[in-house]
């Protein structure tokens, strides 16, 4: 896996330059440079604690970097003045529930959609269509608090998509989903990408990443250790092996001679 095969695009959806963030003695991100091209399905993978979530939060404006710059759709997400305008252009599904638990999925979508200037009819129609695509029609009129973890994840995705943002930031969108729902989400994301939407996704599911992403970047110890543009089927073959190679391979199988029940 190459370290940088994507040339610096003239107008990327996301541009990260010399980004650094540390928690005490732990360096979460180290002088990170990254471009996410517009219209791409950009997957960010890596071990637990590699810095994916930190990078995600900084890009989403939920956290401040120690140094470096971030531009999302040309705006600085840490800039208070421009943050509101930026948030109207992106859909966000973080690693926590971004919706109001006592309200139904439909009520949540109505609140967000109406704040963004959509009328009730359009919001309802869009939500119904998304629910059909994800086979989640039975959940949209129930309060979030009554849904399972996977159903909440789907709800957050649907609500984030209703305003039709040009950029979707999704932190672990497949986590907690059953195989059918995972595949439905992937198909939906691929359909969005074909319509020109930019997707920035963190994930541990390498099979789904290999199937849908156009770019995959590997983060380890806060550093970018590989980035690859995925094109034809051949480039997607053995992607998981290449990622494991980039991460320094697996550990040796244990002996476990002591394990004798």
């Amino acid at each position: 896996m190459d370290e940088q095969v994507t040339p610096r695009a003239p107008d990327p959806a996301i541009r990260v330059a010399r980004l650094a963030r540390r928690y005490g003695a732990v360096e979460a991100l180290v002088a990170l440079d990254l471009d996410v091209p517009r219209g791409s399905f950009f997957a960010l993978v890596g071990r637990n604690g590699a810095g994916k979530s930190t990078l995600f939060r900084i890009i989403a404006g939920l956290q401040q970097p120690d140094s470096g710059t971030v531009r999302v759709l040309g705006a600085d997400p840490s800039d208070r003045a421009g943050r509101t305008a930026l948030r109207r252009r992106l859909g966000l599904v973080p690693d926590f529930s971004p919706l109001f638990g006592p309200l139904t999925v439909r009520e949540n979508a109505l609140i967000l959609g109406r704040l963004l200037g959509l009328d009730r009819g359009a919001i309802t129609a869009r939500l119904d269509e998304l629910a059909r695509a994800l086979a989640a029609e039975g959940t949209i009129d129930r309060p979030l608090d009554e849904l399972s973890g996977g159903q909440r994840k789907l709800a957050a995705l649907m609500v984030a998509m209703v305003p039709a943002p040009e950029l979707l930031l999704l932190d672990e969108p497949f986590a907690g989903l059953d195989p059918i729902a995972s595949r439905a989400v992937l198909d939906l994301l691929c359909a969005l990408r074909e319509r020109g939407v930019t997707l920035f996704v963190t994930s541990h599911d390498l099979a789904l990443v290999a199937r849908g992403a156009t770019h995959v970047a590997v983060l380890d110890g806060g550093r970018l250790v590989g980035i690859e543009r995925l094109g034809d089927a051949a480039s997607r073959t053995d992607l998981d092996e290449r990622i494991l190679d980039a991460l320094g391979r697996r550990t040796a199988p244990p002996d476990l001679a002591w394990y004798a029940p």
Binding site: T84, R87, L92, P94, F96, S97, P98, F100, L115, L116
Partner: peptide, 9 residues
């Protein structure tokens, strides 16, 4: 948390 994510001035 949910309120903080709304696109509000």
């Amino acid at each position: 948390r949910a309120f903080a994510l709304l696109p509000l001035t």
